[in-house]
């Protein structure tokens, strides 16, 4: 099985949040024994290397100028395609403009559970994944259990 991470290049650099997401994915991989695959859109060699260093075992480099327009339905289709070929069980996005738009769309397409805005590494509990997130606008945290893969 694999864990898919979406990464984003902005102004010639891999976004810091994307590198964190890769790192986050590699931590899950450590726990579950899965491998991390990152999706990089229109990245150059050095950027791909950087994503690799952050913990991605495999990088799907997609070259398509249309995808830089941040059109979330195209991006969703691209990630959906990748998820199917990679047989991904978990897909990680950073909680930003793109992540907030694409992750839920993908969730709807794949009939997959969604926890938005995780703040800590997940715990595997049997078939489900447990993730911590902030709730009540920071006044509390909640442990979510996700029951799909």
């Amino acid at each position: 099985m694999s864990i898919l991470v979406y990464t984003e290049i902005n102004k010639g650099k891999v976004k810091k949040a994307s590198l964190e997401a890769v790192n986050y994915a590699s931590k899950i991989a450590e726990i579950t024994g899965a491998s991390v695959t990152a999706i990089a859109i229109n990245a150059d060699a050095s950027q791909i290397e950087e994503i690799g260093k952050a913990g991605a075992k495999k990088i799907l480099s997609i070259k398509n100028e249309e995808l830089t327009s941040l059109d979330n339905s195209l991006l969703t289709a691209a990630v959906e395609q990748a998820a199917k070929t990679e047989n991904a069980k978990v897909i990680i996005f950073s909680f930003d403009l793109v992540g907030k738009a694409v992750a839920p769309r993908l969730s709807a397409k794949l009939k997959a559970g969604l926890v938005a805005g995780a703040v800590d590494y997940p715990v595997v509990n049997g078939a489900s994944l447990e993730v911590k997130k902030n709730v009540f606008s920071g006044k509390a945290t909640a442990i979510y259990s996700i029951n799909t893969s």
Binding site: D71, N72, S73, T76, F95, L97, K100, A101, V102, A103, P104, R105, L106, S107, A108, K109, L114, V115, A116, G117, K133, N134, V135, F136, S137, A142
Partner: peptide, 24 residues
Amino acid sequence: TINYNGSSVGALIAGFLDYPFVSL
């Protein structure tokens, strides 16, 4: 929402309906 802070429902609806979605 200010309780679960998910920012997800709009995009999910767009996904289900296959409508374009503009976030935030």
